[in-house]
Design a protein around this nucleic acid. Structure first.
Length: 435
RNA sequence: GACCCCUUCGUCUAGUGGCCUAGGACUCCAGGUUUUCAUCCUGGCAACACGGGUUCGAGUCCCGUAGGGGUCGCCA
C-alpha cells in the first residue's frame, strides 16, 4: 500500500516551529517511501480559523518549500460525514447518549471504550500499552451537535487514506482512544509515531511567552527557509553519520522513523545561526548578489548598480544572515555613518594620527590611478618609509573612511569607495576628532 | 494523585554487548594565518542521571531510585 502522511494544523494563528517540524518529518517520511503528503485544515474553530490565519499557514508551508499532494481537505466540509458516523456508532450500540455530568446542556454522544487493553507499536517509541481500566469513554459529539476532535480527526484520516500518523508526543493518550475508534468504525488502523516536543532554552515546552518560536518570526529575522528546514529536521533526527548540512534529497534518502529521537530536543538559536551562515556561503555568487540587492532595496538604498555589486562582493564572505547586509554596507552608500566610539578613542585620538592621516591623504591624492592595487602599494610604501607600524597607519584610515574598526579588507574597500569619497572622509575625520 | 513516556559533553547528536582510554557538530577558550574584524587552520575544555543485577565483558540488556515531560475538557 502506498504510504500517505498528512499535516493537520488548526490554523488558529501563527505556525509554530514545533508544528512545522512535525510537518517536516511527515513530509520526509512520505518522500522517503515514495508516498504522498497531504494537508488537512482543521478549521472547525470558527472563531480563530480566519481566512487570514489559513493563508498565513499556507504561506509558511510554501515558504519552506513543501510540495503538498492533492487537494487540501477543509474539516468544516466534513461535518455531515462525522455526524453520520456518530449515528452509525449509536445504532450499533458502540456509543450512547447522555447528559454527561448532568449539566443540563442536553445530551451528547459518548463513545464506549471496548473494555479491552489497547496496544500499538509506535514507530519511534516502540510498544505502547494501556490497560482497559485506565481508559474512559469520551465525548464524540457535543450536546450542541458538533463533532469533537477525536471523531473528526479519525474519520478524516480514514477519508484521506492516511497510512502513517506522525504527530506530537502530546497525542499519545489520544492514540489509545483513536485506535478503539478506528476499530469501532471498521476502518484499518494506521501506523502511529509520536515525536517528542521541542523545548525552549529553559528546557520547558514553548509557551506563548516564548514569542520567538513562530515560523514567520524566523523569516523576518532573515533566516533562509532551507536553513530553518535543515535545522529543524536535525532537531530530533540524525542521518546516522556526521552529516549536518544536507540537501532535501539527502534528507529524504536518509530519513527513517527509527532514527528519530524519543526524548525532547532543545532549540538552539546559535546553531541555527551557524547553519544559516553555511547556507549563505554555499550560495552561488549571483544568487547571493540577487539576495543582497534585494536587501539593499528593502533598506531604501539607491545607488549605481555596478557600484552596489562591487560593495556586495566585498562583504560576501562575512555575512551570516541577510539582515546584516544593509547595516554592514551603510558606509558605502551614505556619508552619514556613525563612528565606532571605542575605535575613535583607541585608534584615532592619539598623538601623530592627525599628521599621519594628512600624509596618507596627500599620497592618495597624488596617485595616478586610484584602485585596490595602487592604494595597497602606496600605503605599504608609506608604512615602510615612515617607520610607523601597519596598524598605526591602517587602523586610522579604516576608521576614517568607514567609521568602523572592522569590516572588509581595507584596500579593496578603498578601491570601491573611490578617491573622492576617501579624501573627503579623511578630511572630515581630522576636522571632527583631531582638532 | 493516577496513567503513559523520557534520561550520553552547556546544546543537537553518534553509539543496537567487545572496534568506546565514548566520536562528530554548535558554543566557549588558546594558538596560527590576516594591516584590523570575520573567514580559514590547529589544538583544548566538556557527557554515559544514580544504585543494583545479568555477562568473561554494559553507554548498550533487566530491575529499582531520582529527576524531567505528557495526559487526565462537551479544546485541538
Amino acid at each position: 500500500m502506498k504510504v500517505r502522511t498528512r499535516f493537520a494544523p488548526s490554523p488558529t494563528g501563527k505556525v509554530h516551529i514545533g508544528n512545522i517540524r512535525v510537518a517536516i518529518y511527515n513530509w520526509l517520511f512520505a518522500r522517503h517511501n515514495g508516498g504522498e503528503f497531504v494537508l488537512r485544515v482543521e478549521d472547525t474553530d470558527i472563531e480563530r480559523s480566519t481566512p487570514e490565519a489559513i493563508q498565513a499557514m499556507l504561506d509558511a508551508m510554501d515558504w519552506l518549500g513543501f510540495d503538498i499532494d492533492g487537494e487540501h481537505l477543509y474539516q468544516t466540509t466534513r461535518q455531515q460525514a462525522h455526524l453520520e458516523a456518530a449515528e452509525m456508532l449509536l445504532e450499533k450500540g458502540l456509543a450512547y447518549k447522555e447528559d454527561k455530568g448532568g449539566t443540563g446542556q442536553g445530551e451528547c454522544v459518548i463513545f464506549k471504550m471496548p473494555g479491552t487493553d489497547v496496544t500499538f507499536v509506535d514507530g519511534i517509541k516502540g510498544k505502547m500499552t494501556k490497560k482497559a481500566e485506565n481508559m474512559q469513554d469520551f465525548v464524540i459529539v457535543r450536546s450542541n451537535g458538533t463533532p469533537v476532535f477525536h471523531l473528526a480527526n479519525v474519520l478524516d484520516d480514514v477519508e484521506q487514506g492516511i497510512t502513517h500518523v506522525i504527530r506530537g508526543d502530546d497525542h499519545v493518550e489520544n492514540t489509545f482512544r483513536h485506535i478503539a475508534l478506528y476499530e469501532a468504525l471498521g476502518a484499518e488502523v494506521p501506523h502511529f509515531a509520536h515525536l517528542p516536543m521541542i523545548v525552549n532554552r529553559q528546557g520547558k515546552p514553548y509557551s506563548k511567552r516564548d514569542g520567538d518560536a513562530f515560523v514567520g518570526d524566523f523569516r523576518e529575522k532573515g533566516f533562509s527557509a532551507d536553513a530553518l528546514f535543515n535545522y529543524l529536521a536535525l532537531l530530533g533526527w540524525s542521518p546516522g553519520d556526521d552529516r549536518e548540512v544536507m540537501s532535501r534529497e539527502e534528507m529524504i534518502e536518509a530519513f527513517t522513523l527509527e532514527r528519530c529521537q524519543s526524548s525532547p530536543a532543545q532549540f538552539d538559536m546559535k546553531k541555527l545561526t551557524w547553519m544559516n551562515g553555511e547556507y549563505l556561503q554555499q550560495l552561488p555568487a549571483d544568487a547571493f548578489e540577487a539576495l543582497a540587492l534585494d536587501e539593499l532595496a528593502k533598506a531604501g538604498i539607491e545607488a549605481d548598480a555596478a557600484y552596489k555589486k562591487s560593495v556586495i562582493a566585498l562583504i560576501r564572505e562575512r555575512v551570516k544572515n541577510v539582515t546584516e547586509i544593509a547595516p554592514m554596507t551603510g558606509c558605502f552608500f551614505s556619508d552619514e555613518y556613525e563612528y565606532d566610539e571605542k575605535g575613535v578613542r583607541k585608534k584615532l585620538q592619539k598623538d601623530g594620527v592627525a599628521d599621519t592621516l594628512a600624509q596618507v591623504k596627500s599620497i592618495l591624492g597624488s596617485l595616478e590611478v586610484f584602485d585596490e592595487a595602487s592604494t595597497d602599494k602606496a600605503l605599504h610604501g608609506f608604512v615602510e618609509e615612515s617607520g610607523l607600524g601597519f596598524g598605526a597607519v591602517m587602523a586610522p584610515v579604516r576608521l576614517a573612511v568607514s567609521g568602523m574598526q572592522s569590516g572588509p579588507e581595507l584596500f579593496p574597500m578603498l578601491g570601491v569607495l573611490g578617491r573622492e569619497r576617501v579624501l573627503k572622509r579623511i578630511d572630515r575625520t581630522i576636522d571632527l576628532f583631531l582638532k
